[in-house]
């Protein structure tokens, strides 16, 4: 059922496969924590990403995008579910095996001002993964760091500088260089340009697209910016309250969105394309509390076309033709 997502990828072997991923966070509540609550951050997410492809994960804040990304890399332990990378069960790995696996899977975080240690030089920031995983001499490591910096379009002379000497765009490129240090196959990019200006964003995105071509990388691109996700991704998964509600090729999501939430999200996105400035669907209210999600379809309280079935039964992700997956009763 799931293997024909994004049609063109049907024949390709999935490099990253996520099945029924669940992450619940326990939150203390009540007097002296006697009334613990469970935040259902990710509630049954399944994904596939083919080799050399980009999957865009979009959704509003609090919908579990970042948690999904971190669970795949096991930066946080998922509550249940399965993650396979090139056929290997990532969640079943021991500590040592996992560390070996991390060479192939790396992450770029949202805010380079906080993801790079201000007290480390660029050489030690980018060199740290090399030191941890490979036994190279100091001069070999330095040569590799210079090579990596040049790969992301920066001068190799910068290795003895510190993060405060760089602009946001440069810092994010240093973070990309660090992620590339061990020749990974798969990168999780968590809002890599959210902290940057548009002209700088364009530099970083262009560099990421170029690196994907040159180094045969697979990307999971997490963002709240639909236009940007559409620009970089082959397939898009739309998340809402810890679930995937629509998953299809980038063109299909934009040209033929099926789920009312996707339609509302697209229409709410301000656009520079003049012909797209039409009358918009404006949703009322905000995203519900993930501690106690509404019964049935999680979107029904904000959906203008909700019917009885939507209030009672949670829709499953089904194929609406050509691998366009959607979770909606309509």
């Amino acid at each position: 059922m799931m293997n024909d997502i994004g049609d063109t990828d049907g024949a390709r072997e999935a490099q990253v496969e996520v099945k029924d991923l669940v992450k619940h966070f326990a939150q203390r509540g009540g007097f002296l924590g006697r009334n613990p609550r469970v935040v259902r951050a990710v509630d049954g997410v399944s994904l596939k990403i083919a080799h050399k492809r980009t999957l865009g994960l979009v959704g509003e804040s609090g919908c579990g995008k970042t948690t999904i990304g971190r669970c795949i890399l096991r930066l946080i332990e998922p509550t249940s579910g399965e993650v396979h990378f090139e056929g290997v069960d990532v969640l079943g790995l021991s500590g040592r095996q996992l560390r070996r696996m991390r060479r192939d899977m790396q992450m770029v975080f949202q805010n380079p001002y906080s993801s790079l240690d201000p007290r480390m030089s660029v050489l030690s920031i980018v060199g740290e993964p090399i030191q941890t995983h490979l036994s190279l001499s100091h001069s070999e490591m330095r040569d590799r760091v210079v090579e990596l910096l040049e790969q992301v379009g920066m001068s190799g002379d910068h290795i003895y500088r510190y993060p405060h000497e760089f602009s946001g765009g440069q810092l994010q490129r240093i973070a990309v260089a660090r992620a590339l240090a061990l020749n990974p196959k798969f990168l999780v990019l968590d809002e890599p340009t959210a902290a940057l200006d548009v002209s700088v964003q364009a530099q970083v995105i262009a560099k990421l697209v170029e690196l994907q071509q040159d180094l045969n990388l697979t990307y999971l691109f997490i963002s709240h910016n639909l236009t940007l996700v559409h620009y970089v991704s082959d397939t898009i998964a739309v998340t809402y309250l810890g679930r995937i509600i629509e998953h299809a090729s980038s063109e299909a999501i934009f040209d033929n969105p099926i789920h009312p939430y996707t339609q509302a999200l697209l229409s709410a996105t301000p656009s520079l394309d003049r012909e797209l400035r039409q009358q918009r669907v404006i949703l009322t209210g905000g995203v519900p509390d993930p501690v106690n999600p509404p019964p049935g379809c999680v979107f029904h309280p904000r959906c203008s076309r909700a019917k009885d079935a939507c209030r009672q039964e949670e829709p499953r992700l089904v194929n609406a033709g050509d691998g366009h997956m959607v979770a909606c009763h309509l």
Binding site: V198, A202, L228, S250, L272, R274
Partner: peptide, 30 residues
């Protein structure tokens, strides 16, 4: 200003912004 931009900076800023129609083209960094 946005659709008949004259100043090179305005144009560059518009070129750098992702648009729905810009898919497949390269975003022009300044």
């Amino acid at each position: 200003v946005l659709y008949e931009a004259k100043h090179p900076y305005t144009r560059a800023l518009l070129e750098a912004s992702p648009k729905r129609s810009s898919r497949g083209k390269t975003l022009q960094a300044i």
